[in-house]
């Protein structure tokens, strides 16, 4: 019983004793990642170049969704992100960065949009008292 468990544990590990949880990928994972990336890149370009969807907002939503999915695909298949490498610290750093990026991006766009709208000389001055 315990011998089986040892064999199962030992399988697939290199002989270095200190396992850092890093994944170096395989031919299969790289090819899956590449295939997904090609599909996820080709569809947005096709949508924009041929104007396949009449509604512009739908096109924008689909393109952004594809970009997000493709970034996740790259993270998993090319950058080999997982929750165990370096005891989870790479994932912690990534989550922290994503939070900062979301705050900075959405904050900048939101604040500057409203600033822009309020600065535009669109008020009709003739009706002012």
């Amino acid at each position: 019983m315990s011998a089986d468990a040892h064999a199962a544990h030992g399988h697939g590990h290199d002989d270095h004793g200190h396992d850092d949880g890093r994944d170096h990928g395989s031919m299969k994972s790289y090819l899956i990642g590449f295939f997904l990336s090609v599909v996820l890149t080709a569809i947005p370009f096709w949508l924009v170049m041929t104007n396949a969807i009449e509604n512009k907002n739908w096109t924008i939503a689909i393109i952004v969704a594809f970009a997000v999915v493709q970034i996740v695909v790259h993270m998993i298949y090319f950058l080999h992100m997982n929750t165990t490498s370096d005891a989870g610290w790479t994932m912690m750093a990534l989550i922290f960065t994503i939070i900062i990026v979301v705050i900075a991006l959405s904050g900048s766009l939101w604040v500057m949009y409203h600033l822009n709208v309020n600065m535009m000389p669109v008020h009709d001055m003739r009706n002012m008292p």
Binding site: D20, D86, A93, L94, I100, V101, A104, L105, S108
Partner: peptide
């Protein structure tokens, strides 16, 4: 070199912030 990969990942994350700022600038 046991901590090189983590250190380099942290550098990439800071690089990510540079690009996020440039994206925000472009967005505005």
């Amino acid at each position: 070199g046991s901590s090189t990969m983590l250190g380099f990942w942290l550098y990439l994350m800071s690089d990510c912030l540079i690009f996020a700022m440039l994206f925000a600038t472009f967005g505005v």
